[in-house]
Simulated assay, not measured.
Amino acid sequence: MSLMQVSNLGKSFGGVKAVDGISFELRAGELLALIGPNGAGKSTTFNMVNGQLKADAGSILFDGKELVGLKPREIWRLSVSRTFQIAETFASLTVVENVQMALLSADHRLFSMWRKAAAYKRDEALGLLEQVGMAAQADRPCSVLAYGDVKRVELAIAMANKPKLLLMDEPTAGMAPRERNDLMALTKKLVTERNMAVLFTEHSMDVVFAYADRMIVLARGRLIAEGKPHEIRDDPKVQEVYFGSGKTFEKLKKSREVA
């Protein structure tokens, strides 16, 4: 059964249709990649699901609730978390305090930026950091972390909300190849353990083909293909519209044959 159903979603800016009547579904326990060339409508779609943009038309049903018209904080409280292309953490706080702040928000508790959250659910925060391999750095300020480690902290922050759906915007942007694979392997593990759904955008095709269960492809605001990675790789329309000659897919195919 689908956790989220997107139906005839549309968004225009002036006379330009950034998203033009797209529909797709997402199931619990599934990583769904949203890909397409620049200007395809990926970010607009992503931001409508998250509530940062309001759809002009269509519906986004999540766990039986309509998301269109809700604010990002209201969507967060429905157990929808998000990570960003540029990792979002409080640099002046420690790693564990960042996660504790997220736990405060998830519990609808008020907090003060001038009063440390050091006593609030520290053990639970440490448990989340353990899951992402950051417990040993819990008391270090985020400002001194390597970028790959900041991404792991951001993932722990997202997990504080006990998400049924995790939205990941370019999760591996700015990361080295090994860091990219480590982060996505960790995400895949969490998806399995928690039976949550993940919708992610990504430009690194090696990451997409290695970790996505299914893919949807946009071009000029419209959905042009949907299916499993091998189906998308071999789709002539995707190769023509998105990759031109299809050489990227052929390279990926050959690399898997060698492996």
Results as ranks from 00 to 15, higher is better:
Met4Arg: 04
Gln5Tyr: 11
Val6Asp: 00
Asn8Lys: 15
Leu9Phe: 03
Gly10His: 06
Gly10Asp: 05
Phe13Lys: 00
Phe13Leu: 12
Phe13Pro: 02
Lys17Gly: 04
Val19Leu: 02
Asp20Trp: 07
Gly21Lys: 01
Ser23Tyr: 07
Leu26Gln: 13
Glu30Trp: 09
Gly36Ile: 05
Pro37Ile: 03
Ala40Thr: 02
Lys42Leu: 07
Gln52Glu: 12
Leu53Phe: 13
Gly58Ile: 06
Ile60Pro: 01
Phe62Glu: 05
Glu66Val: 02
Leu67Glu: 02
Leu70Val: 00
Lys71Cys: 13
Trp76Asp: 11
Leu78Phe: 03
Ser79Cys: 15
Ser81Asp: 06
Arg82Gly: 01
Phe84Met: 10
Gln85Cys: 11
Gln85Glu: 11
Gln85Gly: 01
Ala87Ser: 14
Glu88Tyr: 09
Thr89Glu: 14
Ser92Lys: 12
Thr94Ser: 13
Thr94Lys: 08
Val96Asp: 00
Glu97Pro: 05
Glu97Val: 10
Gln100Thr: 07
Leu103Ser: 04
Leu104Arg: 14
Asp107Gln: 03
His108Ile: 07
His108Tyr: 09
Leu110Ile: 04
Ser112Leu: 12
Ser112Asn: 13
Met113Leu: 15
Lys121Phe: 11
Arg122Trp: 03
Asp123Thr: 14
Glu124Tyr: 08
Gly148Arg: 08
Asp149Val: 09
Asp149Asn: 08
Arg152Asp: 05
Val153Ala: 07
Glu154His: 00
Glu154Met: 02
Glu154Trp: 03
Met159Ile: 08
Lys162Ile: 13
Lys164Met: 08
Leu166Glu: 11
Leu167Asn: 12
Met168Val: 03
Met168His: 03
Glu170Cys: 04
Ala173Ser: 08
Gly174Glu: 02
Gly174Leu: 04
Pro177Gly: 02
Glu179Pro: 05
Asp182Ser: 12
Met184Gln: 10
Ala185Thr: 15
Lys188Cys: 10
Lys189Leu: 06
Val191Gly: 03
Val191Leu: 09
Thr192Lys: 14
Glu193Gln: 15
Arg194Val: 09
Met196Asn: 00
Met196Phe: 00
Met196Val: 10
Ala197Trp: 09
Val198His: 03
Val198Met: 03
Leu199Tyr: 04
Leu199Met: 02
Glu202Gly: 01
Met205Trp: 04
Phe209Cys: 06
Asp213Ala: 09
Arg214Cys: 04
Ile216Ser: 05
Arg220Cys: 13
Gly221His: 06
Arg222Leu: 14
Arg222Gly: 11
Leu223Pro: 09
Ile224Asn: 03
Ala225Phe: 05
Glu226Asp: 13
Gly227Ile: 01
Lys228His: 11
Pro229Asn: 06
Arg233Glu: 14
Asp234Leu: 05
Ser245Asn: 13
Gly246Ile: 00
Phe249Leu: 12
Lys251Ile: 15
Lys253Gly: 08
Lys253Met: 11
